[in-house]
C-alpha cells in the first residue's frame, strides 16, 4: 500500500443553509486512479472545487503530499494550488477557444516560462535563456499533443476542434502543468463509446507517467474498468469507499442509485452491468 497523495479530512462545505459536502473524508493514494461517484447533486463537483481552491471549505482539511512536502490546500490561494501540482479539467470544457491548441498548452506552462523571462525584460530582448525555456515548453506541449493525438491540429484554434478533441485538449493542457494529481471532472461526458475507450487508455497512460488521478465520472463502464478505488457520495455524505468490486456490492450504494432516482440520470443498470 502506497502513501496517500491527497488526504481529505472531515470536509464540510455550506452554501448558506445548504450543506453541499458534509464530513467527507477519503484518501487518494499515489499512483492510483481514485474515482468519486454519486448521483447528481451529491456534491462531487463541490469536492473538486474545494480541492482545487475554487471554494474555501467551511471546515475540514485537505492535505496534498506534493513536490514541496505536505501542503494544506485549504489554506493555499487558488493559483498556488496548481503550482503545488494539482491540475484539473472542467465538466463544461473551459479552453481558451480563440487561441491555438499550442498556445493553450503554453499558457498552461505560464509560471515556468515567466520565471525564465526575468520580469519580461529578458524575453523582450530575446535573451537565450528564455528561448531555451520556450523550446522546452513547446517540446512538452508536443509530447502531450502526441499522447492525445492532436499534433496535426496544433495550429488550429481550440474553439474549432470537435467536442471529443476539446476534451482531450483540456486533459493535455492540465498535464502541461506537470501535476502530481490530475482531477478530471466527468471527462467522458458527451463522448461516444469508442472515444470513452480511448479516454480510458489516455488516463492509464497518464497514470503510467507517474501522475495520480482523481476522477468524477458518470460512465460506470469507465469507472469500474480503470479505477483502483471508488468513493461514493450521496447528499454530500460519503456512503461507501473501496475497490470497484466492493462498491458494486454495497447495499447503500445500490439504494442510493436505485432508491432515490428523483433527478438521477445514472441508472443502476450500467453500475451492475459493468465488467
Amino acid at each position: 500500500m502506497s502513501a496517500p497523495v491527497l488526504q481529505v479530512r472531515e470536509l464540510v462545505m455550506r452554501f448558506g443553509g445548504l450543506t453541499a459536502v458534509n464530513q467527507v473524508s477519503f484518501n487518494a493514494r499515489a499512483g492510483d486512479i481514485t474515482a468519486v461517484i454519486g448521483p447528481n447533486g451529491a456534491g462531487k463537483t463541490t469536492v473538486f472545487n474545494l480541492i482545487t481552491g475554487f471554494y474555501r471549505p467551511s471546515a475540514g482539511e485537505i492535505l496534498l503530499h506534493g513536490r514541496s512536502g505536505e501542503r494544506a490546500l485549504h489554506r493555499t490561494p487558488g493559483h498556488r494550488i496548481a503550482q503545488e501540482g494539482v491540475a484539473r479539467t472542467f465538466q463544461n470544457i473551459r479552453l481558451f477557444p480563440g487561441m491555438t491548441v499550442l498556445e493553450n498548452l503554453l499558457v498552461a506552462q505560464h509560471n515556468r516560462l515567466q520565471a525564465s523571462t526575468f520580469f519580461g525584460i529578458g524575453a523582450a530582448l530575446g535573451l537565450g535563456r528564455y528561448r531555451a525555456a520556450e523550446r522546452a515548453a513547446v517540446d512538452l506541449a508536443k509530447h502531450w499533443l502526441e499522447a492525445t493525438r492532436l499534433l496535426d491540429r496544433a495550429d488550429d484554434a481550440a474553439g474549432s476542434l470537435p467536442y471529443g478533441a476539446q476534451r482531450r485538449l483540456e486533459i493535455a493542457r492540465a498535464m502541461c502543468t506537470e501535476p502530481v494529481l490530475l482531477c478530471l471532472d466527468e471527462p467522458a461526458a458527451g463522448l461516444n463509446p469508442r472515444e470513452s475507450e480511448e479516454l480510458s487508455e489516455l488516463i492509464r497512460l497518464i497514470r503510467a507517467s507517474g501522475c495520480s488521478i482523481l476522477l468524477i465520472e458518470h460512465d460506470m463502464g469507465v469507472v469500474m474498468k480503470i479505477s483502483d478505488r471508488v468513493v461514493v457520495l450521496d447528499h454530500g455524505k460519503k456512503i461507501a469507499d473501496g475497490t470497484p468490486a466492493e462498491v458494486r456490492a454495497d447495499e447503500t450504494v445500490i439504494a442510493a442509485y436505485l432508491g432515490e432516482g428523483d433527478e438521477d440520470d445514472t441508472p443502476a443498470v450500467p453500475l451492475e452491468g459493468a465488467a
Partner: peptide, 9 residues
C-alpha cells in the same frame, strides 16, 4: 477560471 486552474496569478 481556466487561468486560475492553471496556476496563473
Amino acid at each position: 477560471i481556466a487561468c486560475r486552474a492553471l496556476g496563473i496569478n
